[in-house]
Amino acid sequence: MVTDKSLGTTVGSVKFKNPVIAASGTFGYGSEYSPVVNPAQFGGIVLKGTTPTPRVGNPPPRLIETPAGLVNSIGLENPGIDVVLKEKLPALDELAKTNTRIILNLSADDLDGFLSMVEKCNRAKNLDVLEINLSCPNLPAGGMQFGTDPKMVEQISSAVKKVSTLPIWIKLAPLVTDIAVIARAAENGGACAISLINTLPALVIDVHAQRPVLGNVFGGLSGPAIMPFALRQVFIAVQAVKIPVIGIGGISSWEDTVCFLIAGAKAVQVGTAIFVEPNIGEKICSGLSDYLAQKGYNSVNEIIGKLEKAV
């Protein structure tokens, strides 16, 4: 476990022991990977996207690898907010003691769905932050539609913020005309931070069957292939808002992490890379520590936003 004090970062009012967070949907509910690797390697973990009622998910196939990427269409399979609060969060007592922050990702088809879940979360244990997903590409209604309309983003951010006792992060859709406008909408609504990007909408075709590979036709592209695009969107968002930005998108190494920090992200989320290397949090922190030492920095905070100052 990395305990290097120089790696500590702060997102709004929440302190993280290191800037590497496991992204929603890639680390389950925090316990699935426990027999393989120590979840406390991460500064935080974002639990799987949760909805007001249980969802069975999309028909398989749900996954297909593409060049340096992965297209998924899980369809938010989850047991629903009540089971998550009653069974999944209480199972994280040990992890909570390690100061790994626990973040719950919430998805809903409408505002009422979000509000009912947020209200329930106010009484939850082992929960530090709520990440409101306005960007899921695999939902028939809501999801990404919310995230492309600035008025909707501001309205949901504002309503959720009023009800919640926990800090609110808004997770943004990547494919919008101007990410700066959407980022500002979340900020105006009162979001404590924004996280971006979610997966990119994608289609993969089986040339022999002449049909889509995925059971749900479309999916979301993640992995190293999307990293430079994610970095661009994050850099633009950082310049557009004063609230903290969490960078997500294809991060698979300490070098990628440093890029996002230099671009101004206060922390990063890793996802697909966990599937490849379940100990990726440790590896990134180790590489990041060495980088800071070599460059003569005392804290990771000294490199955050370097790019903004450089251009």
């Binding site: 890639t26 990977y33 998910g57 996954l63 998924n72 899980i74 966990i274």
Partner: peptide
Amino acid sequence: TMACGVGACRGCA
């Protein structure tokens, strides 16, 4: 087809 191998991603349904 699998991604995580431990039941975290729900990809191999």
